[in-house]
């Protein structure tokens, strides 16, 4: 009983005393990195994520599925048609009225239009195509759609952001809103903005999606991570994009 009362109290306090990062205080994760890692991201010839983007360009132009169509068959050159697209996602998918993220949208295009099988989450191909599409938004401001249908999902994402998880009992907000800039062991705590994804993470020696990164954090607090493509991750991504609105897209980000 005492435990239940305590949890109820905690929840109430969290809702009434929400600390958010002021717009002028927002910092990209890149700003918390060492100068050498920053330089690696900035220089396209040393940014390993550009290899994924190059592979994505090949895939963009390669016919796939029973229709024998490539992405380019319908969309033409990505540098025009995909400009700004990643900065707007997740967005409502018209035929289902449900939110979908960029990876999910690529797979819907494959199944609906190319009649191709969906690409597996975290597969080289899906990360490459997503990186290539997101690269077309680099430098553009994160621009969440002004679509009221997204609001309940954004709200769900914010609730998850403030929910304590796992044996260590941390919420995302406790580290990334309340304690950013401090050090967890050797690692500076960033603000957790989603504007560089997919990223090349040195710890992974490879590319990964925002969902992979969120799963890492959940495992870190000894929580059962949400599944790839789960409603919870789409909701969190929606909230994170609204929280980062106006910040420039950086894909492909490099992170330690």
């Amino acid at each position: 009983m005492i435990r239940t009362a305590l949890i109820a109290f905690t929840t109430t306090v969290a809702v009434t005393a929400i600390a958010q990062i002021a717009p002028g205080e927002r910092r990209s994760g890149a700003e918390f990195m060492s100068p050498s890692t920053q330089a690696m991201q900035k220089d396209d010839t040393s940014n390993p994520g550009m290899l994924a983007a190059l592979e994505g360009e090949t895939l963009w132009n390669a016919p796939a599925g029973n229709e024998g169509k490539s992405c380019a068959s319908c969309h033409g050159p990505a540098d025009k048609s995909m400009k700004g697209v990643a900065a707007r996602y997740p967005a409502i998918h018209q035929s289902t009225s449900m939110p979908v993220d960029l990876q999910g949208r690529i797979n819907l295009c494959r199944s609906d239009n190319q009649k191709a099988s969906p690409l597996r989450f975290e597969s080289r191909e899906l990360l490459a195509l997503t990186t290539y599409v997101a690269l077309q938004s680099r430098g553009m401001p994160v621009s969440p759609p002004d679509d009221a249908r997204l609001d309940p999902f954004r709200n769900q994402g914010e609730t998850l952001w403030r929910q304590r998880f796992g044996q260590l009992n941390f919420s995302c907000a406790q580290c990334h809103d309340d304690n950013w800039g401090k050090r967890l062991g050797s690692a500076p705590i960033p603000q957790a903005h989603p504007n560089g994804y997919p990223i090349y993470r040195l710890e992974w020696q490879g590319m990964g999606s925002l969902q992979r990164r969120l799963r890492n954090c959940m495992a870190g607090v000894r929580a059962e991570p949400f599944g790839f493509g789960s409603d919870e991750f789409i909701a969190l991504e929606l909230y994170l994009m609204s929280r980062a609105a106006g910040m420039p897209m950086e894909t492909p980000g490099v992170r330690p």
Binding site: L6, V13, A14, G166, Q167, N169, F170, A223, E224, P225
Partner: peptide, 22 residues
């Protein structure tokens, strides 16, 4: 302090979505 970020080191209930190993 209900707002504390310090984990409860001797508590196994009332936690949310604890990983199977834990």
């Amino acid at each position: 302090n209900p707002q504390s970020i310090m984990p409860s080191y001797y508590r196994a209930d009332g936690l949310h979505r604890v990983g199977t190993n834990w």
